Amino acid sequence: MSAVGSRIEGVVGPVAHGGHCVLRQEDGPVVFVRHALPGERVVVEVTEGAEGDRFWRGDAVEVLEASPDRVEAPCAFAGPGLCGGCDLQHVALPAQRALKASVVREQMLRLAGLEVDVEVEAVPGDLDGLRWRTRQRYVDLGDGRRGMRQHRSHAVVEVDDCLIDGRGRVPEQELHTVRGVEFSVAPDGFWQVHPGAAEVLVASVLDGLEPRAGDRVLDLYAGVGLFARFLGEAVGRSGAVGLVEGERSAVAHARTNLATLPGRWEAVSGDVERVLARPRGDLLSGSVDLVVLDPPRQGARRTVVREIARRTPRRIAYVACDPAALARDTAYLREAGYSLASLRALDLFPMTHHVECVAIFHRD
């Protein structure tokens, strides 16, 4: 029998991966609750679940005892049954970052067996957590109207002003310029949506890897070559950079972006796992000094980690958009003889549960 629409009163527990808090019933499944904060007593309306399920999902539709970190959401379209884009607008910004840090810590402990001190850093470029998305997609409702989808639903909520939409706030010519270098990117190609993201990610990778003149570098899941470009400059004429990216269009743009590098470089289109297993070119085979990888949400996974370790880099920079994937791959890297040297967490997606991490690994 479906439990959807039923209501439960209780005190929610800690935040979990995915932006919800955990409510444990005395008699019934665990409920993953959105729009709540740890320690609050709330009334939860079940949005997904049935008798016999291991867990249900729900929204906190009434707050009986509020957390001191609760604030009024700045956006009128944020809340139960409304737009599903932002899940932390009811939380003060410092508390949002503390919640994200606790999720990263929990994932690293549970999946990688490491106790890690994490602080989620604010990144310049947003306005108190708003107006940061340089790309935004809406549902066209006709007659000039637009909308956003509800959480885990095809239902659409009409939205006249999305407060995280920052398009037009940053001049178009600045969006793809990093450290004075203008990057070629397809109109629909991937580029970080927070205006401060590219600079802080490049700085984190370069600081962590400490590239030297003459180093051989692998840039995996390389996109349009953001990291490869600056690593190539750092290793100079005597160095070399090999780049692998699955999207053909991105590789074409990467070749444009790397064209003026002083040293050797190679950009290959293909699945990272397959290319590493059967390298096509001198720069993708044999030992390397440094590796940077920025995999999709599911992570790099064991086979790719094994191929990286086989090339014996002295340092690896891992850029992660998902803490659970990062933690799983950290466990694989530890098995392969690498230790976590540092972990930097960046608030590139304010008002949402998402967080970007840059982890640096050293070979034991």
Score class of each variant (00 low, 15 high):
residue 292 V to N: 01
residue 73 A to N: 03
residue 46 V to Q: 00
residue 264 R to A: 15
residue 204 S to E: 14
residue 262 P to M: 03
residue 240 A to K: 00
residue 50 A to N: 09
residue 206 L to Y: 11
residue 25 Q to K: 04
residue 137 R to C: 04
residue 172 E to S: 14
residue 263 G to E: 06
residue 119 E to H: 07
residue 99 L to S: 01
residue 42 V to K: 01
residue 87 D to R: 03
residue 188 D to I: 10
residue 361 F to C: 12
residue 82 L to A: 08
residue 227 F to E: 11
residue 47 T to I: 02
residue 266 E to H: 11
residue 292 V to K: 00
residue 229 R to M: 12
residue 202 V to Y: 09
residue 217 V to G: 00
residue 342 S to P: 03
residue 312 T to F: 08
residue 261 L to G: 00
residue 307 E to L: 13
residue 10 G to D: 13
residue 322 D to I: 05
residue 137 R to A: 13
residue 107 Q to A: 14
residue 343 L to I: 08
residue 148 M to C: 15
residue 111 L to Y: 10
residue 278 R to F: 11
residue 115 E to A: 15
residue 109 L to P: 04
residue 327 A to W: 00
residue 158 E to A: 13
residue 260 T to E: 15
residue 288 V to T: 12
residue 328 R to T: 06
residue 186 A to F: 09
residue 208 G to C: 08
residue 99 L to C: 02
residue 286 G to M: 06
residue 7 R to F: 14
residue 177 T to A: 15
residue 36 A to P: 01
residue 303 T to Q: 15
residue 158 E to S: 09
residue 338 Y to Q: 07
residue 37 L to N: 06
residue 209 L to C: 12
residue 233 E to A: 12
residue 166 G to N: 05
residue 182 E to D: 15
residue 244 V to S: 10
residue 140 D to W: 09
residue 29 P to H: 08
residue 33 V to C: 02
residue 357 C to Y: 05
residue 210 E to A: 14
residue 222 A to G: 15
residue 7 R to Q: 15
residue 329 D to C: 07
residue 39 G to N: 07
residue 166 G to A: 08
residue 287 S to L: 11
residue 336 A to H: 03
residue 322 D to F: 09
residue 40 E to T: 02
residue 170 V to N: 05
residue 251 V to W: 02
residue 3 A to G: 09
residue 202 V to W: 04
residue 201 L to S: 04
residue 100 K to C: 06
residue 257 N to L: 01
residue 152 R to Y: 07
residue 117 D to C: 08
residue 163 L to A: 02
residue 317 A to H: 05
residue 289 D to G: 08
residue 67 S to L: 11
residue 14 P to D: 15
residue 204 S to P: 05
residue 270 G to F: 05
residue 240 A to Y: 04
residue 5 G to P: 10
residue 36 A to C: 08
residue 286 G to F: 09
residue 70 R to Q: 11
residue 149 R to Q: 12
residue 74 P to W: 02
residue 117 D to K: 09
residue 16 A to I: 15
residue 311 R to Y: 02
residue 22 V to P: 06
residue 312 T to P: 01
residue 291 V to H: 00
residue 30 V to C: 11
residue 33 V to D: 02
residue 110 R to S: 15
residue 118 V to M: 06
residue 289 D to C: 10
residue 332 Y to G: 00
residue 108 M to H: 02
residue 219 D to I: 08
residue 328 R to N: 07
residue 47 T to H: 00
residue 238 S to R: 12
residue 188 D to P: 04
residue 349 F to K: 02
residue 262 P to E: 14
residue 112 A to L: 04
residue 310 R to F: 07
residue 354 H to Q: 14
residue 33 V to I: 09
residue 53 D to I: 10
residue 66 A to Y: 03
residue 198 A to I: 02
residue 84 G to C: 12
residue 344 R to V: 05
residue 17 H to I: 13
